[in-house]
């Protein structure tokens, strides 16, 4: 019970501080409140692990994870390059390009559109990760098979969004550009693609997480002796939990950075869209 007292004290103090800060409700205090909450969770985690001597196998303390992170930087960087840059990123780029190109091709045929849209929606809800073992069999253990899994996983969400985006212009706008004697490609390039961008970026943002998941999970089915999925499964086998958590930190950072990067490009390209206007 004595061990619990300081933990409860820290929790109550942070809660009180946040309750007080939340009343101001400005940009800075909002950021502060979120940061304090995150820091409190980490501190409480550390305190609980130490106070109750939680076995490292079940839950390592944040400080142990940080040590594992700092001590394994070259290893983690190698895994990052193998899984994120080679597997996820290349697959994501190929899948996104293929999906947008397919959407533009399909868009010219209402018949195909009516046929593919329900199927695309259906496939987007399926557990596509399941094809990972098949693709690993076809493309071998290295990053090509991971990229292939990622291509299939990101294709349908982006396709569905891009098709919705290409249909987003209204008749008035299309009539206007037709009165300017614009051909198909001109109206596609100058009107319909820009109008579709917010939708396409929505699909791109959803699929960043999918890309990482696909690349990591595909490594559970076979991989060379590096990569984040490989490291997680072998480190779990050796009960080296701090290293596993360090990989999770890398995955979290990579996922957030990937998403943030896409959101940044979106803000630059679709600055005219209402959702991008700066609000205070």
């Amino acid at each position: 019970m004595t061990a619990a007292l300081p933990i409860i004290a820290v929790w109550l103090a942070a809660l009180g501080l946040n309750a007080w800060l939340a009343r101001f409700d400005t940009r800075t205090t909002r950021l502060l409140v979120a940061l304090i909450f995150g820091a409190t969770v980490l501190i409480l985690w550390e305190m609980i692990v130490r106070a109750y001597a939680v076995p490292m196998v079940i839950l390592p303390a944040p400080s142990q994870i940080a040590r594992a992170f700092a001590g394994n930087l070259p290893l983690l960087w190698g895994d990052f390059v193998q899984t994120i840059l080679k597997g996820a990123l290349s697959g994501w780029l190929i899948g996104a390009a293929a999906a947008v190109a397919t959407a533009i091709a399909i868009d010219r045929s209402p018949f195909l559109q009516r046929g593919l849209l329900p199927i695309g929606n259906f496939v987007a809800a399926l557990p596509i990760v399941g094809i990972a073992p098949i693709l690993v069999m076809w493309f071998g253990f290295d990053w090509q098979s991971k990229a292939a899994v990622v291509v299939v996983m990101v294709f349908f969400p982006i396709l569905v969004n891009a098709l919705a985006g290409l249909a987003a212009t209204d008749a008035l706008q299309r009539d206007l550009i037709a009165t300017w004697n614009a051909g198909y490609w001109q109206s596609l390039w100058k009107l319909r693609l820009p109008a579709a961008l917010p939708f396409i970026f929505n699909g791109l943002k959803i699929s960043t997480t999918l890309a990482l998941i696909g690349a990591i999970v595909a490594e559970f089915f076979g991989s060379p002796t590096r990569g984040m999925g490989f490291r997680i499964s072998t480190a779990v086998g050796q009960l080296d939990l701090p290293l596993v958590w360090a990989e999770i930190v890398v995955a979290a950072l990579a996922g957030s950075a990937f998403y943030g990067l896409v959101a940044l490009v979106e803000a630059r390209l679709t600055f005219w869209h209402p959702s991008q206007r700066i609000t205070t």
Binding site: T209, I213, I216, M228, E247, A251, F258, Y259
Partner: peptide, 8 residues
Amino acid sequence: QTVPILAI
């Protein structure tokens, strides 16, 4: 939402 949770 941006973290690949399935990996853990």
